[in-house]
Design a protein around this nucleic acid. Structure first.
Lengths: 360, 360
DNA sequence: TTGGTGTGGAAAAACGATTTCGTTGTCGCG
DNA sequence: CGCGACAACGAAATCGTTTTTCCACACCAA
């Protein structure tokens, strides 16, 4: 049979009211929370009628009547990237817990598209928008984006920036700089005194914060800037892979490679293996993020664990319970040392000894 | 300053019309497609006014007026699982290309919650719902779910099932059985004649299809059912890890382990290492899905590549261009042999030789 | 000039909810 | 018995759109 037969319109509140023999207003009041009370008999009648008709309130109509929706818009660069997936997971589950519907859009890392998306999202009149991902150091673009967000805010919406600082809105950021600095200190303590930094694209704030933090940490440990070689590349697995290739082809075989995110680190490890070098033995590798899916790579990847899910949850919190003033939440990372950076020389021996003691 | 100062309501179509000095109808007709034509001068005036006021049409109101939205609802078990993330990525990008907004909800693998979500989603009046994830072999639950989906369809919505067969709606499925069978044949050709199957939870269709396909393939290669040990476990990384642990603790050290998805396979590999066994050398391991993020694990994981993104894209296609009859799309997988299953004995030597020839 | 036709614009009626406000009914108290 | 207070119901206004209806006008052919 063809499929648009026996199409029946969805039951409306009107239908429910008629079925229950009450007025529209009463039906509305009994079905959806209202400040006013309604007689228990009536409420029961309405609920029964609604169940009988399989009634589901038309959210769009509710939204028009109330002037606002219970939706939160999520904007990410790429949902297949586990970094964004984990953050989005936190946002979605927190939203559902708070009775909000999550809407999601992906920018593909295109700032122009990002602005379009925000503009389109405004039409949805969501109660909040969570914009996650890094900002490029492009002043003109940033200004246009800020303009859209300001407009959204003026209309009563609540924009939250996640993992990107510097715009005048509620912001949740991971402390990339401090995390990278701690990581550098930890690695220096393991005896590393030179490093190659796969630094991601120039102008991408998240990436440059991490690179800079690492350089600072190394400096604090007494290693001058010259001990570090910075290589720029895409912020992706392939970026790490290719950049590692460039380094190797330049004849350089580094003792330590720091990739500014885990996905890049994995790419770099793959490239090392392709060159016959074993990560963790011939070349130490460290990453950033502590992506869950990558916790089982071998050798275990030294990295900085970020509370990604918590970041998402906090963002929704800010939307549901807005503070009276603009807030900035800075979430710290935590260094996790694993087998990919075993250490060198005396420091390595000491570290191994400590590990031994720990297991015993 | 406190933040709800100078809140100005969003510009409405009414405002635009007044600003442009035309009627509401004219404004509507010039901004959104309509059958009737409008004078070019007027249209220009309206467009200019809209831009000036930074007008974004209220989608809820449009939806109420038109009786339908241009939204597609996505329902997944867990967005942080890369399997779902990749599918969702395909859906979202295809939706955006088609001018649809994507809404997303996660069930956390709870069938009860899944039904709730569908019901709530109906209230959004989306043009389509893509339900991705496996069905449990629970007849009562399935019937209730089908009831909700039927209702949604009757209201003019378009439900699509992705990666789960057997319900009377448009369906896109991956050919788990054939994929697993091919994998088993390939592994048998490599000389493996016994295997442990980490089979996921009992009653989860995707998992059991893969397990059964593998058993069939092994049988087709001449190895009887007794050559396979089936162990049930959760469909997650930890499930694979724990099940592998159980196997090892039972004193069994298998030559080949087939985990019914990649994430489980990675868990199993981690557990093997913990027991001092090197995957790919001491124990061969195979997975299923060919998750992108896991393509760089070492040793490379033998698996079956599924066109996950394409599955998502196809689902949206079915929503945008509905066929007149119910359709079933079966997407095939492709066996990818990597270093985690090097082969045994003469077969291994032959395989290595062939590989050699290929590189030369 | 007249009648038909095609095109554009203004006004009003949906759409499906919420919410305001007026009406009715009940109860307690003197 | 009458009055006021209070609770709860229902009619109608409202939200921001689309869509229909109807009117005005220009153009064309006879």
């Amino acid at each position: 049979m063809a499929r648009d037969d026996n199409r029946k319109a969805a039951a409306t509140l009107h239908d429910v009211a008629r079925e229950a023999g009450v007025s529209l207003a009463t039906a509305s009041r009994s079905l959806n929370g209202s400040t006013r009370k309604v007689n228990e008999d009536y409420r029961a009648r309405v609920l029964a009628a609604a169940a009988r008709l399989n009634y589901a309130p038309n959210l769009q109509a509710q939204a028009v009547a109330k002037g606002r929706t219970s939706t939160v818009g999520i904007v990410v660069s790429d949902i297949t990237d586990p970094y964004f997936a984990q953050i989005a997971g936190g946002i979605i589950s927190a939203a559902e817990r708070g009775g909000l519907i999550a809407t999601i859009a992906v920018t593909g890392r295109d700032p122009e598209r990002e602005i379009q998306i925000i503009s389109a999202l405004r039409g949805q009149r969501p109660s909040g928008i969570v914009l996650v991902g890094s900002r490029l150091a492009d002043a003109a673009m940033t200004a246009r984006l800020a303009e859209q967000l300001r407009e959204f805010e003026a209309e009563g919406g609540h924009p939250v920036l996640l993992s990107q600082r510097g715009l005048p809105f509620d912001t949740i950021a991971f402390d990339n700089e401090a995390g990278a600095r701690s990581l550098a200190l930890a690695l220096a303590a393991l005896g590393y005194d030179r490093a190659v930094v796969l630094a991601g694209p120039e102008g991408l704030l998240t990436a440059s914060e991490r690179a800079q933090g690492f350089i600072d940490g190394f400096a604090a440990a007494g290693h001058p800037a010259e001990s570090i070689t910075v290589v720029h590349c895409a912020f992706t697995r392939d970026g790490g892979f290719d950049a590692m290739g460039d380094v190797l082809e330049s004849g350089h075989e580094p003792a330590l490679v720091f990739a500014v995110n885990d996905v890049m680190a994995v790419g770099a490890m793959a490239r090392l293996r392709q060159a016959g070098l074993e990560p963790g033995r011939d070349v130490a590798v460290a990453g950033f993020d502590d992506i869950e899916t990558l916790r089982d790579v071998d050798p275990g990847l030294t990295t900085v664990r970020l509370p990604l899910v918590q970041g998402g949850v906090t963002a929704v919190d800010l939307i549901v319970h807005p503070a009276s003033e603009q807030s900035l939440v800075l979430l710290p990372g935590e260094v996790v040392v694993r087998a990919s950076t075993p250490g060198v020389g005396a420091a390595a021996a000491a570290a191994a000894l400590a590990a031994e003691a720990l297991t015993a």
